[in-house]
Amino acid sequence: MSTSLTWYVALIALVVLERVAELVLSRRHAAWALARGGVEFGAGHYPAMVLLHSALLAGALGEAWLADRPFVPALGWAMVALVVLTQGLRWWCIATLGRQWNTRVIVVPGLPLVDGGPYKWIRHPNYVAVVLEGIALPLVHTSWLTAVVFTLLNAWLLSVRIRTEDAALATGR
């Protein structure tokens, strides 16, 4: 295995650890929300979302290794920087939403809509992070096919997810 691919495995492993941390926090926040009368919306699309995001990680690494994709420094380092920025945006969203954040769509009746932090400028900033990461993470090691397939499938999934969230927020407040 090349040195660049070894580093790419380490980067993907760090993203996996970050996702595990998200899921632990999400589970805690979901329990908090449900204990306060929270109602879940759109549970049907959640397994597809988990599968797609898992496939992004596996596909990026698998394509880099199986298709012997090269690390192109100008592209790769720019994409590493973008991946780091997307993680920063993602955690800014999580911090801003506090206990109201989780990976599911759960609305606690009576809680105000969060409009601070990145939500002051963008309605769905976490999805900006998801879209950019879905392009950048595979392109760190030129896994362009994974980037294209994830982006197309994610566009469809986000159209479902955003409609679900917007409808839930409109009825749950």
Score class of each variant (00 low, 15 high):
residue 22 E to V: 11
residue 138 P to Q: 06
residue 150 F to A: 02
residue 132 L to I: 09
residue 128 V to S: 09
residue 20 V to P: 14
residue 158 L to H: 13
residue 102 N to M: 07
residue 97 L to K: 01
residue 121 W to D: 07
residue 165 E to K: 12
residue 131 V to H: 09
residue 105 V to M: 03
residue 61 L to N: 10
residue 20 V to T: 11
residue 123 R to N: 04
residue 155 A to P: 08
residue 88 G to N: 03
residue 70 P to R: 12
residue 127 Y to P: 14
residue 33 A to S: 05
residue 162 I to L: 15
residue 71 F to T: 10
residue 165 E to S: 13
residue 26 S to C: 11
residue 117 G to C: 03
residue 31 A to I: 00
residue 111 L to A: 08
residue 81 A to N: 05
residue 118 P to K: 15
residue 154 N to E: 14
residue 112 P to V: 03
residue 55 A to N: 01
residue 55 A to T: 02
residue 58 A to W: 04
residue 91 W to Q: 06
residue 100 Q to A: 14
residue 76 G to L: 04
residue 96 T to Y: 10
residue 80 V to E: 02
residue 12 I to K: 08
residue 92 W to D: 05
residue 65 W to K: 01
residue 45 H to P: 02
residue 110 G to W: 04
residue 55 A to R: 00
residue 63 E to L: 09
residue 151 T to P: 07
residue 90 R to C: 09
residue 114 V to I: 11
residue 170 A to N: 00
residue 89 L to E: 06
residue 24 V to H: 13
residue 93 C to W: 08
residue 54 S to L: 14
residue 124 H to K: 12
residue 13 A to K: 07
residue 166 D to W: 04
residue 29 H to C: 14
residue 153 L to W: 08
residue 155 A to S: 14
residue 21 A to R: 15
residue 34 L to R: 10
residue 75 L to W: 01
residue 125 P to F: 05
residue 43 A to Q: 12
residue 81 A to Q: 05
residue 81 A to K: 03
residue 49 M to G: 12
residue 1 M to C: 02
residue 11 L to S: 02
residue 96 T to E: 10
residue 154 N to C: 12
residue 36 R to Q: 05
residue 11 L to R: 07
residue 100 Q to K: 01
residue 159 S to A: 15
residue 37 G to H: 03
residue 129 A to E: 13
residue 150 F to Q: 02
residue 49 M to E: 14
residue 39 V to F: 11
residue 173 R to Q: 09
residue 43 A to V: 08
residue 169 L to W: 00
residue 16 V to R: 05
residue 65 W to M: 00
residue 135 I to S: 05
residue 41 F to W: 15
residue 52 L to Q: 09
residue 73 P to A: 12
residue 34 L to H: 03
residue 164 T to L: 08
residue 81 A to S: 09
residue 82 L to N: 05
residue 85 L to Q: 04
residue 165 E to P: 13
residue 134 G to Q: 03
residue 38 G to P: 10
residue 16 V to N: 09
residue 62 G to I: 05
residue 129 A to S: 13
residue 39 V to P: 11
residue 33 A to K: 11
residue 5 L to M: 07
residue 125 P to V: 01
residue 57 L to W: 08
residue 91 W to L: 06
residue 133 E to V: 02
residue 162 I to F: 12
residue 151 T to D: 02
residue 164 T to H: 07
residue 66 L to C: 03
residue 43 A to S: 15
residue 89 L to F: 10
residue 168 A to D: 00
residue 51 L to S: 14
residue 57 L to N: 04
residue 111 L to C: 04
residue 6 T to I: 15
residue 149 V to S: 06
